[in-house]
Amino acid sequence: MAAAAAAGAGPEMVRGQVFDVGPRYTNLSYIGEGAYGMVCSAYDNVNKVRVAIKKISPFEHQTYCQRTLREIKILLRFRHENIIGINDIIRAPTIEQMKDVYIVQDLMETDLYKLLKTQHLSNDHICYFLYQILRGLKYIHSANVLHRDLKPSNLLLNTTCDLKICDFGLARVADPDHDHTGFLTEYVATRWYRAPEIMLNSKGYTKSIDIWSVGCILAEMLSNRPIFPGKHYLDQLNHILGILGSPSQEDLNCIINLKARNYLLSLPHKNKVPWNRLFPNADSKALDLLDKMLTFNPHKRIEVEQALAHPYLEQYYDPSDEPIAEAPFKFDMELDDLPKEKLKELIFEETARFQPGYRS
């Protein structure tokens, strides 16, 4: 834990890192770190609560700039109880001085990944967590956004079992017609939660990839272990087919990539493993919904509104309290091709509203 900075004593240090967030945020305490930044909790002297502050230093890398800009653009436009918001952003007053960006968010005690390492969940908890994931996802999908990296560590939890989806750095506007060349190379989302079509096709992607990830998360809540822990690309596919069985001819016809289709045709026939054999203690309604989410063919996979209306979630289902976005989200430009200098300018502009004396 960093010592509390005395008023006016300059930035606090946390594990050798400068955290320049005073005077409003003090009493910093280390939480963890990701690929390009550290997260601390801090005391907000204005709202009198502890908050989470993520320090991001992305400006050396085009990919990190892209992810940072995506996350900020999306989260500043989203407003939903099951999606983490941005409360404040701290950065230098000029673009030349801006080396880091500090993002202030609600402090959540833990995440689903940490929880599943230590606790076996009751059916009631599984049901409530799944409902909140789908409630947040309904809003995301209504904005025409794909999260693309749903996994237990991106689901934040607090002691009252509130759940918030975080990390929109890989999110995209849904565009089933656009052929994202190089899709697989830039697709760094965790393999275990990846839909089979991501490994088999490169053309376009749809909201059904997020539903697949939610199915993987439900299976993990039922058993405290990942359902498809593939060691590499082909191993991942083999794990999936080992449980779902061989795809039907109709399902194979959806695979545009001939090499991928021929690979699947070359494999020995596998039978589907019954879900109640894998999860003998699970609620039968939970397994019915799991089956509809972990469907090989993305066109037959359940959609988020149908999933919310499934009998497993009937005690929570309330369409009048499951809000959607006001308007579909649009990125003005494809960020993939922009140089990091341009992305830095866009991050600077996007964060201006939090600067003292800002006038829109």
Rank of each mutant, 00 (worst) to 15 (best):
H80V: 06
L265I: 06
F59T: 12
A7V: 07
R301I: 14
R24Y: 03
I256S: 09
I256E: 10
L200P: 05
I31Y: 07
K340H: 04
E314Y: 07
I89A: 03
W275V: 05
L115W: 02
N201W: 09
Y128T: 03
D210E: 13
S208L: 10
R225K: 03
T63K: 15
I133F: 15
A327H: 04
I227K: 07
K55N: 14
S248K: 03
D175F: 10
I347Q: 11
N224H: 11
G8E: 11
V21K: 00
K114M: 04
N144T: 13
D124R: 02
F331M: 01
R191K: 06
L146C: 01
A42P: 05
N224G: 09
Q119W: 05
N262E: 12
L264K: 08
R50T: 12
L338C: 08
P323N: 01
V214Y: 07
P274W: 08
F354D: 12
S246M: 09
I217P: 06
R301C: 10
I240K: 08
E341T: 11
A5D: 12
K164E: 01
R15I: 12
Y205R: 10
V273R: 05
E326M: 05
E81W: 02
D251C: 10
E349S: 04
V14Q: 02
L287M: 14
D20F: 08
L137S: 06
D111V: 14
G182Q: 03
M108T: 03
L156S: 04
A189T: 13
K330M: 15
R50P: 11
H178C: 04
F129C: 00
N27I: 15
I95G: 02
H180C: 07
N154I: 15
H147W: 04
G230L: 02
A9C: 01
I211S: 00
K300P: 03
G10H: 07
R67I: 11
D167A: 14
H310I: 08
A6H: 05
A92C: 01
K54E: 09
L150H: 03
I217F: 14
Y64C: 14
F279I: 15
R79V: 14
K292D: 09
L237S: 04
D336N: 13
K73V: 09
Q236N: 05
K151P: 00
T26M: 06
L121G: 07
T26N: 14
F168K: 07
S248V: 10
W275L: 15
L146V: 06
D318F: 05
E349I: 00
R24T: 07
R359C: 08
E326L: 07
Q66R: 13
F19D: 09
D88T: 00
H80F: 00
T185S: 15
C161L: 08
M221I: 14
L289G: 07
H61R: 12
Q236A: 07
Y317L: 07
L267N: 00
R225W: 01
R77N: 10
P274A: 10
G169V: 14
N271M: 08
S223L: 13
L237Y: 10
Q119I: 09
Y312K: 07
Y263A: 05
V104F: 13
Y113D: 08
L267F: 00
H269C: 09
Y36F: 15
M199D: 11
P356C: 03
L76H: 02
D111K: 03
I126R: 01
P247S: 12
A327Q: 06
F348N: 11
M98I: 15
F59E: 11
S223K: 07
M199S: 07
N276L: 04
P280G: 10
K48I: 14
L308P: 00
K292N: 13
P93K: 07
L265C: 09
L137A: 09
D291L: 06
V101N: 08
Q17S: 02
T206G: 01
L28S: 04
L338Y: 06
V21N: 04
E350D: 15
L200N: 08
K55G: 15
I89N: 13
V304L: 09
S142R: 01
C216S: 15
K73A: 10
K330D: 00
P323H: 13
L150K: 06
T118M: 11
H232M: 00
G10A: 09
L287N: 09
D291V: 14
N297Y: 15
L335E: 01
Q66D: 06
L121Y: 06
F331E: 01
G85T: 05
K55E: 14
V14I: 12
H239N: 15
I302W: 07
V49M: 15
E109R: 04
I133E: 02
R79F: 02
Y139H: 00
I74R: 09
